[in-house]
Design a binder for these strands. Sequence first.
DNA 1: CTGAAAGCGCTTACAG
DNA 2: CTGAAAGCGCTTACAG
Lengths: 356, 356
Amino acid sequence: MSDRSVNLKALAGHLDLTVSTVSRALNDYPDISRATRERVKHAADALGYRPNQNARRLSIGTPETVCYLIPRQHGASSQPFIAQLLSGLGEALNERNWDLLVCQADASAGDLETIDRLVTSGRIAGLVISRPLKNDPRITLAQDLGCPFVVHGRSDHCDNYAWYDVDGEDGFFTAVNHLVQMGHRRIGFIGGPLEYQFAQERLDGYLRGLSHNALAHDPELVQIAEFTDEGGSAAAGLLMEQPTPPTAVVCVTDMVALGTLEALHARGIKPGEQVSVIGYDGLHFGKHANPPLTTMAQPQAHAGRRLGDMLLSIIDGADPRSFHELQRAHLVQRNTDGPAPVKAGQNDVSVREDKQ
Amino acid sequence: MSDRSVNLKALAGHLDLTVSTVSRALNDYPDISRATRERVKHAADALGYRPNQNARRLSIGTPETVCYLIPRQHGASSQPFIAQLLSGLGEALNERNWDLLVCQADASAGDLETIDRLVTSGRIAGLVISRPLKNDPRITLAQDLGCPFVVHGRSDHCDNYAWYDVDGEDGFFTAVNHLVQMGHRRIGFIGGPLEYQFAQERLDGYLRGLSHNALAHDPELVQIAEFTDEGGSAAAGLLMEQPTPPTAVVCVTDMVALGTLEALHARGIKPGEQVSVIGYDGLHFGKHANPPLTTMAQPQAHAGRRLGDMLLSIIDGADPRSFHELQRAHLVQRNTDGPAPVKAGQNDVSVREDKQ
DNA sequence: CTGAAAGCGCTTACAG
DNA sequence: CTGAAAGCGCTTACAG
């Protein structure tokens, strides 16, 4: 245990040295004699001296602190990986004894003000922005302020800054190909609000999957939902009520996919048999869904650590444009994907029958 | 947008006043003429002046920062509510323009050192400790350091500090009563490592439920598992392999309950029909389990906000012992609880049959 | 190799 | 009502 009351001055007095010498000894200045350096460090340990960080940071001119912007919940548990992300970020920061601040701030006006305040009042030296919109004012703000930042995800134009992302476009392309290989020809898509760049990308991947397989894009087969199970359920309902419902549905997130399963159950349709469903995220929970959810799993283990390292490098002066890291999602096959029903295209899983 | 370069001195120069006057005007000192105060504030706004917080905090002698200790993952997603907690905490802190630091630190030696450093280097004025052990060295440390803190949960002796908790003892008592009312007489318990106080409490509630209903406590019916689905699954396996397996199982967390469901499925046992299962937490996801999981739901919405307010009050000088807030969990009945099978006690859902 | 001094950007008694 | 000065606890050129 240390004592908050022992400061440099007290330590110096104890050693019969000046604060100047003691400070340099502690910071390994080369012009301090080895004997003195060791004596100082020893005493510092013994007295439990810890430099006051506010004073130190004021003096060296950096807050040695970075802020992670928690996105506001746009639907339940919109940040399933937040604990892991924070711990990775913290790991990178800890190596330098930097601190991690968290602050809930999305792209809304009041929150931009909060970010502005944080950087202009000298509290943070860098920013981690997550879940960016296509055109995200937080990114513009950080740029205008000259505040180093990294983005978890990408916005519309992402050439000028550092980001770490998982390739959702590729993920949905992969999911669609997988379904086509299983014989599906009518594949629906339940997406999220397109102001989010990742929602757009996932839609793009779906569309590319269709055209790659020479399937027509039927706008009726594309539904936009909130990122919740309720959202997914409602959207899936609309899909299944169509004259020719899809035999497979790809969903923007696992949560949305769970809602889709629910909608299918409600209509007496068997997921994985009559209608295939593929989610995206790879939530551990999906394993326990009914039936276990097939999904495109994002590799999330290293996101925090990588973002933290990138940000630190940029603060050190590295070119942000040199950090563009794109990971791939991979298919985790559980039980909601299966071969297309034999009479695909004219299959009989329409809700109308159930309603009678 | 503001300018980091305009400091008090620049602002004072611009106004032809001294920094002393400007500072007092900005901070609403009563001895500043109204005209001056308004002129100063106006100019501060116009120039986008923001006091440097490191300097300010060094001067006033408090870091105006509080730290939330993220518990290390003791099993997957051990902190399902972390995002909500952080945002509640941030809300309370924001009102005073305080900051929220996060730091991953459990009760292990290296992490205690981290906490020590954080407080003795003057970086934080308060601590939020979560998932306490029965005898948690973090609590002892905070006390020794004289660092104000609040605990999310309780440890063995919790009279001397502030805490916010959900009554797990009562929750399990309630769950057992519910099962007894449905005719169950042989009720199993899958708990977590008893070094965690909440694991002990939930076990206590289970035991009280038994004795309250004049049911014998069969030690064979109590299994300890890791807080994961795999843990739950293994423990449930042991329970069901007994000569007279239970007709109902209460589980320390929803995750463990999901593992239990899996173990039952693997043995061809129908949850909610042949064997009832009740979880604890009230995770939204449980709704999508197979079948939807009955659980004791914790009210989590206000935990962060309440903990933040408590901590701030204590830092202001309030007596920590005046903050003991105990919430109750409530039964969310979904589909894994049901009446005891008719031939309870000698029912035939033994794993041995399946193995042949 | 060590000391004396200035400075980081604030706040706050103390004069006047 | 405003100014001059000291202080918060560090770091870091600059002397010697």
